[in-house]
Amino acid sequence: MADQLAQAAPTGTSLRIRRPSAGPSRTARRGKVRQWPGAVFIAPHMLMLGLFMLVPTVYAIYTSLYTTKLIGGTSFSGGANYVTVLQSSQFWDGVGRVLLFGVIQVPLTIALAFFFAAIFDAGIVRFSRFFRTVFFIPFAVPGVVAAVMWSFLLLPGFGPYATFAEALGLGKLNFFSSQLILPTLILIVIWEFTGYNMTILYTSLKSIPREVTEAAIVEGASLWRIILRIKLPMVMPTVVMLVFLNTVGALQLFTEPSILAAFQPQAISFGFTPSLFVYNTAVGSGEYNLGAAAAVVLALIIGLLSVAGLAVRRRDGEFS
């Protein structure tokens, strides 16, 4: 960071510059500083945030309190839509499914990502630069395209992976059967996101000073001990953030199952995930009020889980 500063500062401005300090300097505030421009700088973004996130959120809550009937128009119905959603076994099946999905997919993805990040960071793999680039590529592939590719690759009968599985003596596997559809989705999402998580963990591991590793070697610690007992705890804040982001993503699962539904309609039900439930209720069946209520419930579930997660971390002393 410091060398970037040294290069950029003299060319970046024609103003007379005092010697720039070599790093972030929060202590250097002195005297009275004009602070109103701060509000002006953030205003454009806050305006867009208000218009395109807060207004729809408030409107969703408002809409969810009404019911539209073919005869009689729209009328206030209080919590009736919420009762319908909360009593819908399809909705709760979907919630249970994404929770199960997340409980398996998130730890697997992050464990794989950390394993690769750690061995690349230790410099004990050949061609690690090449591997880092390759692993990251799926991040640039839209979920729609990923789901289409995997639908063909995993096609029962004549898809190449089903053929491989049969050659390996696993019998005729149907990756889209009701037993295997969840593992199949987990496989696709791991393919999509492992490299992204790996890249973030790798940059985080790289910031650990080499003196730490050297001291551990002098103490006689093995590589695996250094990785698991010294480096992993040091990058724990990054791991926690990734667990949070991946979990929120898992609970919102929509694109992959909705594309698979085009190829394997029997495998993906109306409420396979809560997001599909919202979409199919509102757009498929035209019940916007009910869909809005389901959307609010889904947002509340995600919010509650996040707050609970934060509370547990705080109690364990991970966050100050």
Binding site: M53, P56, A60, Q252, S275, A292, A295, A299, I302, S306
Partner: peptide
């Protein structure tokens, strides 16, 4: 924390 699926539908409305 607000899921995109919870935002897109009200945005449409």
């Amino acid at each position: 924390l607000v899921p995109i699926t919870s935002l897109a539908l009200p945005l449409f409305l």
